[in-house]
Design a protein around this nucleic acid. Sequence first.
DNA 1: TTGTATGCGTTATCAC
DNA 2: GTGATAACGCATACAA
Lengths: 309, 309
Amino acid sequence: MATIRDIAKLTGYSITTISRVINHHPYVAKEKRDEILAVMKELDYVPNRSAQNLSTGQTKNIGVLIPFTNHPYYDQLLLGLTKAAFEKGYRVTLLPTNYEAELEKQYLDEFAAKTFDGLIVTTRANTLDKFIPYLHEGRIIFCEESPDVSVGCVYTDLEGAIREMIASLQAKGLNKIGLTLGRSKRLSYNSRLILDLCEELIPDFSKEWIKWDCIHAAEGIEAARYFEKLGVEAVLSNGDEVGATILQHYKKQGKTPPLVIGRDNLLISEVLNFSTVNHHLVECGETAFRLFYEDSKEKIKLPYDLIWR
Amino acid sequence: MATIRDIAKLTGYSITTISRVINHHPYVAKEKRDEILAVMKELDYVPNRSAQNLSTGQTKNIGVLIPFTNHPYYDQLLLGLTKAAFEKGYRVTLLPTNYEAELEKQYLDEFAAKTFDGLIVTTRANTLDKFIPYLHEGRIIFCEESPDVSVGCVYTDLEGAIREMIASLQAKGLNKIGLTLGRSKRLSYNSRLILDLCEELIPDFSKEWIKWDCIHAAEGIEAARYFEKLGVEAVLSNGDEVGATILQHYKKQGKTPPLVIGRDNLLISEVLNFSTVNHHLVECGETAFRLFYEDSKEKIKLPYDLIWR
DNA sequence: TTGTATGCGTTATCAC
DNA sequence: GTGATAACGCATACAA
């Protein structure tokens, strides 16, 4: 592990000059540059990133707060994010919270420790005000609607999609609508939003129509049982996999399933022929990075495509 | 952004003492510790990670070479990896290669720059010998069988699974077996392995039975068309999603599909009722981290579960 | 139990 | 064009 000093010694030039060729600065004679480059290659010299980071105060690294890595919603977001980040020479470090507030706080402190140049918040276990003090530590971008706060954010138009879905169901005469939602403990912004919409739009909406803590496919089974007892006529699921599982559960028993609507536009919705939404999550990830990169405080609502089947 | 020096000044103690409380070292009087802690809290002091990294020569960060983030195979691996890493206080940075050799090399150089304490190779675009020089730069773990090289590796027993599948198909009298495989350019170790097995075990095996470059669900359509023309009796797919798409394509046209076997044990295989394999990828990721953590050169073959349907 | 001095490997500010 | 030298913020022998 040669250092910049070794290269300086061996070539006879100063550390400064070596640093200049590392950083592609002008003002260094071509012959010298070539000579230095040769010696660097010979010694397998690679500038130490930690030293550069300390010296420049940058890491070219951003952290992403996510719950876990095996959910299509976050994976699509991640895909767009890493792609965009990479194009600008940034790396992305995964910060899986599993929805645990304490863990999330540790990550915030790591952010404060300048480990990352930026933080992308795709999920949030703490209340928004816990994030405020960290806003001055660097650039934080939220992937959820964040009114009342001066931060950049990019989010899906869940409200529009839900409104359209409910209107469509009602037009079909379906009024008893089951809901699957995520964690019941600390309501996500999205869950809150959907709840409010249901109460606004559905005449006799009852909180009993909600099946909480549905996240992965497996939880769909219990949801199906629940909805069956309840006798719902339709289900707004919070993900294609959960929706598919519900559908399958009915079918296996030879019962007519409710009208299920998914949310990830996955292959399985096509295969099982149920409606779903394309929320453009890849674009969401790309945009999140752009907001970070441009240090923008824009608030961007992404369009959606309802896919009726 | 207070520094350790600021804390030293304000408390009147030396930098060393501050450093000791940061790192939970013994030999510092409880009252002083408390006093220092209080001042740190008051100033929102957080030790700078880049400085720590440079000073200790560690980053508590590992890089993961993967093709992309939206494939169930890698997502499961990633889940196990991040989980295990976090328990030991390590972070994981995504290094998506998209199978591009040049890009992968950049990551290797970043590894050489001490950006990461370790590198997990779940995919590889370059030949193995390109990795050799980097073996001395830090700990590299491979998630593929790596004989003839002194490195730790953990891999799925694809050979066992394929052998069992083929035997089972042959017992059913199915001999014309189609194959979907990944990138056709630089054969993966797994593709090579499967090819060899097919040539060994299937009497009239022809390379024409292979549909290359099947990675995501979408590529399954063309594969289905290809296999239909070919008239294969069974398909060993390289993933549940590809398998499902193939199956659907036949069904849509009212044709009897070949016997399809998947590889990810996803919900969709259950829903469409086709056989698949559980390769214990989450465990694979966990083990990969353990090998890194223990600086082990073990070579571990993971068991598999064939799920017949 | 505490403090001094040095090193970690760069970048950046000068002056030449 | 080029080169000393001072940061960058922390950890750690070594002393005391």
